[in-house]
Design a protein around this nucleic acid. Structure first.
Lengths: 197, 197
DNA sequence: GGGAATTCCAACTACCGAGTTGGAGTTTGC
DNA sequence: GCAAACTCCAACTCGGTAGTTGGAATTCCC
C-alpha cells in the first residue's frame, strides 16, 4: 500500500490540537498524541521536531483557522455586537483555540516572543483599521479608540471559555446557558459601540 | 532555638504561590518550592499533603486576599468604572491571583467542583446584590443585568493579565503602558454603566 | 532530667515521559 | 531488478520528579 504521509501529518496535528488544548503544553503527553493519532511516537519527532515545536505549530494553525473563520471588515464592524456574537460562536464550536491562546499566555514569560508574532500583529492591525473606518463613516461609536473596542470584544467574548469554572459561581441559578451568555455579550458590545450615546 | 512552625508554613505557602502562579500546577516543582522557602521538601508533604492539595490551599488563600482587598458595596458600585480600575490595580500589584485563576480554569474539567466553591459563589452573589442595589437607586445603569455587569468588569479588568502576549500584538506602538490600559478600562466600564444613555 | 511528641532533613525509591535507535518494510528512479 | 531514499515502529535510554523513610535534633510536660 502507498504511503500517505500527508494523512499521517494531519492525524498527528489533529490529535495534538486536542491534547494540547485539553492538557496544556506541560501535561500533554506525546504518547497520548501518538496513540490518539494511531501512529508511532517517533513519527511526531521526525515530522515536527520536539514537543515545544509541535505546540507552536499547532497554535499557529489554529490562529490561521480563526482568522479565516471570523473576518472583520468595515461592513461587519458596523454591527460590532453581532461580530462579538460570532466570535463567541466560533469559540463555542472550536473550544480548542482560546484554550491554546491562554496556555500560551500563561507559559510565555514577559517579553518573550511568541509563535507567528508578526502575522498576528498584522492581523490585529487590519481589524483595528476596519473599526477605524467604520468609526469614520459614523457607523460605530467614534468615542472609543478602536484598539480598546477590539480589546473589549476579545475579552468579553472569550472570558467564559478561559474560566469556565466561574459560570457556576457567577450564574448559579442557570446551569450552562450558552445562548443566554451570547445574548448578554451582544448586548454589552452593542452598548459600547452604539454611535449615539 | 524554638521551632517556629507557623513561619515555616508561611514560607512554604509564599513560595508555593509564586511557583504555582509562575509555572502552573503541572510545571511547578515541589523541590523548587522547598528550596525557595528554605525548608525541606518533606515539610510540604507533612503540612499540606500532596501537590494538588497544596495548589487548592494556595488558590483559596489568594481568593480570600482578593475578596478583602477589593470589596464592592452599593457605594463603590455607583462608580463602577473606578471599581474596575481598582480591580486592575490589584491585579497589577498581585499578578499571582489571576494567573492562578486561569490555571484553575484550564485544568478543571467541565462540571468538576473547584476549591472553595460555596464561598466563592456567595461572594459573587454579594457583589451582584450590591450592583442591583445601586441600580435600584439609579446610580447605575439598570438596563444591564447585574451579573452581566460584573462579568464585564471581571473580563475587561483581567484579560490583559491572562494573555499578556497580546499586548505587543494588539497595541504594537506603545511598549507596555499599564496606566493607559487602566484608563481605557475605566472608560469602557463607565460607558457600560452610565445611567443615562 | 527524662520520656513522649514533634520538627526537621539527607538520602532514597519508584515511576513516568521525552526523545532515540536500529532495523524492517516500502517506494522511487533508472 | 536493484540500490538509494524514505517511511514506519517496537523497544530502549536516561534524566527528572512526586512522594517516602529512618533517624537525629529539638521541644514539651510532668
Amino acid at each position: 500500500m502507498a504511503w500517505d504521509t500527508q494523512r499521517t501529518r494531519r492525524l498527528i496535528l489533529d490529535a495534538a490540537v486536542a491534547e494540547f488544548a485539553a492538557q496544556g503544553p506541560e501535561a500533554a503527553r506525546m504518547d497520548r498524541i501518538a496513540a490518539e493519532a494511531g501512529v508511532n511516537k517517533e513519527r511526531i519527532y521526525s515530522y515536527f521536531g520536539n514537543k515545544r515545536q509541535l505546540f507552536a505549530i499547532v497554535l499557529t494553525k489554529e490562529l490561521e483557522r480563526l482568522a479565516e473563520a471570523v473576518p472583520l471588515d468595515e461592513e461587519t464592524a458596523s454591527d460590532l455586537g453581532e461580530y462579538a456574537g460570532r466570535v463567541f460562536d466560533y469559540h463555542r464550536a472550536h473550544p480548542h483555540f482560546i484554550r491554546l491562546l491562554h496556555w500560551e499566555g500563561l507559559h510565555t514569560p514577559a517579553g518573550e516572543p511568541v509563535a507567528a508574532q508578526a502575522e498576528r500583529t498584522a492581523h490585529y492591525a487590519d481589524k483595528i483599521a476596519a473599526l477605524a473606518a467604520a468609526q469614520r463613516s459614523r457607523r460605530l461609536n467614534p468615542g472609543i479608540p478602536p484598539q480598546d473596542l477590539l480589546y473589549a470584544v476579545i475579552a468579553l467574548a472569550g472570558w467564559w471559555f478561559a474560566t469556565p469554572q466561574m459560570q457556576r459561581m457567577l450564574m448559579p441559578g442557570l446551569n450552562d446557558d450558552p445562548d443566554g451568555r451570547r445574548a448578554a455579550l451582544v448586548r454589552l458590545v452593542r452598548i459600547l459601540s452604539r454611535t449615539d450615546p
